[in-house]
């Protein structure tokens, strides 16, 4: 899933995770476990990172109280700029989220207003999903915040996998106690990543399925986040279309562009 390249938003879903996932790579020989892990993850990250991207995806959110499904289109450029616009349902059509650096803006076409999210809203749910706005913004490289190591290298459920363990550095502004990521060895496709708190309690799981090739790249077209304390709830993102390295201007990621997007 090349979400880093696709839309930062979607990548943000899993912020760190995705970064990690995308960056799986080949292994070198004479290096430590940690060096190897970092190298693989970063290489994958770079490998999947395009200069720019455009994608169409849907997002289904299911909670105890409601179920909703959104169709979205997203653009990204570099790692700082991304834009997500709702296509359907009609009621929310045109609602857009712009990410520029560490700021997030939301545009509501009904009232023709742009709101800059404050720090207090960062942990709020992004469009009612199980992702937070903060998930969208997190930019730091996993190696800045985590100590990475390979804790499993072998066959599991009939396929060869690497399992990475990411332990946050003591000073990192990261809520997790640990993250584990399982990746297929043959094509470095992510399978699942699991988030733990400091007591090593499982907090949420992100599953990846449905590996497809789009825009010339191969990635899991579906990812699903399930909070551990509410197993009945989940948010599922399905990619329908992806293009990479398309011509797109920085000015398309501005507040003015937000309004145009409707």
């Amino acid at each position: 899933m090349p979400n880093k390249n696709i839309i930062n938003a979607a990548r943000g879903l899993s912020a760190v995770i995705l970064t990690v996932i995308l960056s799986t790579g080949a292994m070198a020989d004479a290096e430590t476990n940690q060096e190897k892990a970092v190298r693989i993850l970063e290489r994958v990250d770079d490998m999947w990172r395009g200069e720019s991207s455009r994608g169409v995806f849907s997002m289904e959110v299911r909670t105890k109280r409601y179920k909703r499904k959104l169709s979205l289109e997203a653009w990204s450029k570099g790692k700082d700029l991304s834009l997500v616009v709702i296509k359907a349902p009609v009621k929310e059509k045109g609602t857009a989220t712009l990410k520029s650096g560490t700021s997030i803006y939301t545009y509501l076409p009904k009232t023709d207003r742009t709101i800059r999210l404050t720090s207090g809203m960062m942990m709020g749910s992004w469009m009612g999903s199980h992702f937070t706005n903060d998930d969208l913004v997190k930019e730091s490289r996993m190696s800045d915040d985590y100590d990475v190591s390979i804790i499993f290298d072998g066959e599991r459920d009939g396929q060869m996998v690497y399992e990475f363990e990411l332990i946050p550095k003591p000073d990192a502004a990261v809520v997790w106690g640990k993250i584990t990521i399982a990746v297929r060895q043959d094509d470095l496709m992510p399978i699942v990543s699991t988030y733990f708190d400091e007591d090593m309690e499982k907090m949420r799981t992100m599953d990846f399925f449905d590996i497809k090739t789009m825009g010339g790249r191969k990635f899991p077209a579906t990812l699903r986040v399930t909070p551990e304390d509410k197993p009945d709830e989940y948010t599922e993102v399905v990619y329908h279309e992806m293009e990479f390295d398309i011509p797109i201007d920085d000015s398309d990621f501005s507040i003015a562009a937000l309004k145009r997007s409707k």
């Binding site: 720090s119 942990m123 708190d197």
Partner: peptide, 8 residues
């Protein structure tokens, strides 16, 4: 004001 977040 600040947002306080844990894993949960």
């Amino acid at each position: 004001m600040a947002m306080f977040a844990s894993a949960a």
